[in-house]
Design a protein around this nucleic acid. Sequence first.
RNA 1: GGCCCGAUGGUCAAGCGGUUAAGACACGGCCCUUUCACGGCUGUAACCCGGGUUCGAUUCCCGGUCGGGUCACCA
Length: 484
Amino acid sequence: MEVRTRFAPSPTGYMHIGNLRTALYEYLIAKHNGGTFILRIEDTDQGRLVEGAVDVIYQTLRMTGLKHDEGPDVGGDYGPYVQSERQGMYLQYAEELVKKGKAYYCFCTKERLDSLKEANGEGEAFSHYDRHCLGLSEAEIETNLKSGIPYVIRQKMPTEGTTTFHDAVYGDITVENSELDDQILVKSDGMPTYNFANVVDDHLMHITHVVRGSEYLSSTPKYTLLYEAFGWDEPSYVHLPPVMKDAHHKLSKRNGDASFQDLVEKGYLPEAIMNYIALLGWSPASNQEIFTMEELMEQFDLSGLSKSPSIFDPVKLTWMNGEYIKNMDFDTYFEKVQPYVDAALHNKALDQKAIAALLQKRLETWADVAGLVNFFDALPAYSTDLYVHKKMKTTEEIALDSLKAALPVLEGLETWEETAIHDALMALVAEKGIKNGQMLWPVRTALSGKPTSPGGAIELAHILGKEETLRRMQMGIDLLEAGK
RNA sequence: GGCCCGAUGGUCAAGCGGUUAAGACACGGCCCUUUCACGGCUGUAACCCGGGUUCGAUUCCCGGUCGGGUCACCA
């Protein structure tokens, strides 16, 4: 049988990491089996509609490579794929259930329901509908319906026995039917409740694997009973543990936690984000950690899913993002990094390609670029302490001496190429009988004004150009002499 | 509170009756090196507790503890 999964987000304007991971797994389950991945927009909560929110969903799926085979924008044989356009089709299914004796009309008012809850209260939540309307006669129902009394349709739960369903992650789960409330299927405005719409939609769209958060685990027996009542085949369930912010809190937009787009804005690559979240709750048979989407498709297996929640670790995501940057071919990398380099530099004469090349092995996210390159623009103020480096065996005296010796030599260079600069400096080192570091560290320091820099003396000198290099070296000399 | 689910280093995690309990991130050290980074090597660090079952439990069972979820005319 063809595997069909669906991603059914509500258009809220954000793509949560947890939702995105669910989408990823749905996609992988489908594609691993050569199946179909469907997008269904669940926009029935009109009060929460957000402008442009659906576009965020499309955009995210496009950026992450989770290409849907059916959906509102691409069509398909089982549309419409927007739930608000399906509103008319649910009532008949609920009525079918009423005919079968698996559901019933309920005319109870909100007030009666509220008082019911208070009555059995004691402050503790335990409220089952008391089935007041289950006892209504045909005639009474008919009369109520005709006089236009608002009603809902409730699912009639068995009062005895148990219901068991199987979950791919959690195994068999059994509950007492007496624990189940006669949940509302159709609201008094004629609209289906989420749970009901889900069952009907999933059946109509021939969904084979229902993948969702573990918060649905406790309502799943009701789904099972619904499928049984209809006589429909039940899909496989894959419930996923939550993605946490810390040991106690789920990752959520309400806490201001990062959404997918936030992470992209912070300088993370969509591929790295997907790779990272694939491993949050799933582990492959091997020790492999870096995966292309194709590799994930091949290797994804339900048996690798974990039952326990996982904490989203931005530090590891950052590491992984760095791996992606390091492994990109230069042209691809340059195309992506160039805007960040350009934005960080006022001096447009600088060779951005050369700077970018220096950066590739040192970047973890695009956000690192500015801090790494700003000294090319303007030499930061620095203390002569920087010239003292134990491992390089430098002191302020040695630094001053080296800079003074190097300045005229570099000034006399005809060509400003790395090899020329290198050879000139190394000849000086040999001539003076000092260690490489005793010459190169002072130069590097004078050129960057920073304790660390992307690249050493020669690379920096080359990029800065002859004039600026000499200027900065002279500034270093002045600084050191003033400090004497 | 009832019901359901979960628990291996700080984090992600492998494990599925017998292991020196993998690997990765982070952290420390060493090497390489013109700084940093990269790369290589290496170190610290874990089976929630109590009972069973068993020749033998991280692994199976029961109880507890802790954590999470759920009990809407929300999705």
